[in-house]
Amino acid sequence: MQKIITAEQLCKEYNNGSNTVKVLKNIDLEIYEGDFTVIMGSSGSGKSTLLYCLSAMDSISSGEVKYQDQRMNNMNEVAISKIRRTEMGFVFQQMNLISTLSLFENIIISGYLKKESKKTVHSNAMSLLSQVGLDTFAKRLPSEISGGQQQRVAIARALINSPKILFADEPTGALNSKSGKNILDTLSHYNNNDNQTILMVTHDLKASLRANRIIYLNDGEIEGELALDKYAAENIDMVEREKNVLNWLQGMGW
């Protein structure tokens, strides 16, 4: 399998007055193309910090992060910004849609960052809205749709530039169970049908079942890793899958 991101001895520290807080400690990790990888752990274990460091949204204190064998900690901010803008997609718990723009406009504004033609960007935006079931709502404002629908727009926005990897930080955390399932179905669809690489942080057991790989963090260190079959709702015994994942998580101290 092709590696897309590699962390070697990654450490992250924060200075808190006279104290140094070690958030991540000597992380060695490889993320592979086409995988749906989930990072789990207790509150404060460093899950989101790890996601931000791997995507170069946050700096590291020591060690190394490589994106397709490029050493990101040696790049200047212009080069890093270009990679994030054109080759990475981001979905957060808070959708961060621009309230004064329509759903369509929220998506195309990100599409223009890759300097595609207007015609291509508009066509891709409508295609994505259709894929997430919201093409008839293209002219609506974010305030005129539900939170789950807003998150689907956020996913479409993240995919407009055909990113090589999609980073998701608690994308279902602010949603009810039905809306959360819709978001997970959307992510699973892109992973299964488009081989979209996904790296997601979650505290939700149901969300973790969509992964084919789960990384467990404890106190800033990787405690364990679980490999699963690729998720396919029609071919998987979800009761057994949930039981196996829960038993493993409890063994990790979750």
Rank of each mutant, 00 (worst) to 15 (best):
Y67V: 08
I107S: 06
K178S: 12
P163G: 07
T136V: 15
L246W: 12
V91F: 02
G34K: 05
T186R: 00
D169V: 05
S48F: 07
K3V: 15
P163K: 02
M126W: 05
M1P: 10
S177I: 10
I107N: 03
S188F: 00
L166E: 04
Y231N: 08
K115H: 13
A168C: 13
V121A: 08
I165C: 03
D169Q: 11
R85G: 12
S59C: 08
S42P: 01
P142L: 07
D229F: 10
S45R: 06
G147R: 08
H203T: 08
M88T: 04
Y190G: 01
L184K: 00
E64G: 08
E30Q: 15
L97C: 02
V121E: 06
T172W: 01
I31M: 00
F36K: 00
I160L: 04
S99E: 14
L187I: 04
E8L: 09
L187R: 00
L50I: 03
G133L: 07
S45E: 11
M88Q: 06
N16L: 15
K181Y: 07
L54F: 01
M72W: 06
R241E: 09
V239M: 14
L187P: 00
P142R: 02
K115L: 13
N247A: 15
K22S: 13
S179M: 08
K82A: 15
A227C: 14
S102P: 07
M238I: 14
A174T: 09
N212D: 14
E77D: 13
G251E: 12
H203A: 10
A156L: 05
R213H: 09
H203Y: 11
R140C: 10
S43M: 03
F167R: 02
E240M: 13
Y112R: 11
W254M: 15
N124E: 15
T120A: 15
A138T: 09
M200Y: 05
V21A: 06
F36D: 00
Q70L: 09
E8Y: 09
A7G: 09
L249D: 06
Q151E: 01
S179Q: 05
A138D: 12
I27R: 03
A174Y: 03
T172R: 01
P163Q: 06
G41V: 10
I83M: 08
N212P: 05
D237W: 09
L199H: 04
G89W: 01
R213Y: 10
K181Q: 12
L141D: 07
Y52P: 13
T20I: 11
M72E: 06
L246A: 13
G17Y: 02
V239T: 13
F104G: 00
I215S: 01
E8P: 01
I145C: 05
G44A: 07
E105S: 10
I236G: 00
H122I: 11
L54C: 03
N76A: 05
D229C: 12
E225W: 04
E223L: 15
